[in-house]
């Protein structure tokens, strides 16, 4: 069940999702708008520490998750750092490619690349706080409280719920196909996959009918009104938000004065 497993094990499980959402957004926005490598690294450290310290997630889990986007980040930053240079421009390192084009790394773009890398890593760390602490249903509930249109929130909740139902169905169809050698050759595999998709669509259609009937029999009249389990308000998280923001801004100011 993916990352949700960790959210359900979080120590902040019984705290309202709204302050967690603001904490993440605050850290994320500051991290991105400061445009500084130091702030990125500080955000990475702070939000990581919060996930481990407050959320009670194992550090190894967090490191494993942080490793996931590393390859994307590296690939994304490479073209920023390593680029064609006009002849005669000073560079940290440069080489002639095919004896004609001069490619290399300059101090300026190395700094830009590093900033982008750190900034992105900080942002990812902030987002992980959100995905590893409140469970999805709490998050959608928080969105509703923040006046996101009810229709949108209900759709998100239903999609999330039936994602698991349909992925289970798809898995079962796939096993049934494989047991009849449906994926022996590439061509047959493609055909089987198409059949899987179409039968999944039909099942989803019928599922919608049955779910609607079931909802109706429990008094559904157009709104999926439910009552969530009680949560503690967690207003103290706004204090944490202020502290994180203060450290981010101080880091940014320190970096600026140091660079000048």
């Amino acid at each position: 069940m993916g990352t949700d497993r960790y959210a359900y094990a979080s120590r902040l499980r019984r705290v309202e999702a709204v302050p967690k959402l603001w904490l993440t957004l605050g850290a994320l926005i500051l991290c991105i708008s400061c445009g500084s490598a130091a702030v990125g690294l500080v955000t990475l450290a702070l939000m990581g520490a919060l996930t481990v310290g407050l959320g009670g997630q194992r550090a190894a889990t967090l490191v494993r998750f942080l490793r996931l986007p590393l390859a994307f980040l590296a690939v994304g930053c490479l073209p920023i750092v390593f680029r064609p240079l006009p002849a005669g421009e000073g560079a940290l390192w440069a080489a002639e490619v095919f004896g004609r084009f001069r490619w290399g790394v300059t101090a300026e773009y190395l700094r830009v690349g590093l900033t982008v890398f750190c900034k992105a890593l900080g942002a990812v760390s902030a987002m992980y706080f959100l995905s590893l602490n409140p469970p999805m249903t709490d998050l959608t509930q928080a969105l509703e409280r923040l006046h996101v249109p009810k229709l949108l929130v209900e759709l998100m909740e239903l999609i999330y719920r039936f994602l698991f139902v349909f992925s289970d169905t798809a898995r079962r169809i796939r096993v049934a196909q494989e047991s009849r050698l449906g994926y022996q050759t590439a061509g047959r595999g493609l055909r089987s996959l198409g059949e899987l998709a179409s039968s999944l669509f039909l099942r989803a259609w019928r599922q919608a009918d049955r779910s609607y009937t079931a909802l109706e029999s429990r008094g559904y009249t157009g709104a999926l009104n439910t009552l969530p389990a009680t949560r503690t308000p967690g207003r103290w998280l706004y204090g944490v938000l202020a502290a994180v923001a203060a450290v981010q801004i101080l880091t940014w100011m320190a970096e600026r004065s140091w660079l000048q």
């Binding site: 469970p135 999805m136 249903t137 709490d138 909740e157 239903l158 999330y160 719920r161 698991f164 139902v165 599922q207 049955r210 779910s211 009937t213 079931a214 909802l215 429990r218 999926l224 009104n225 439910t226 009552l227 969530p228 389990a229």
Partner: peptide
């Protein structure tokens, strides 16, 4: 699975 529409057990029961 036809009846449980919410990913949250408590909320589903409250419906």
């Amino acid at each position: 699975d036809d009846q449980l529409f919410s990913a949250d057990v408590y909320r589903d029961i409250s419906f």
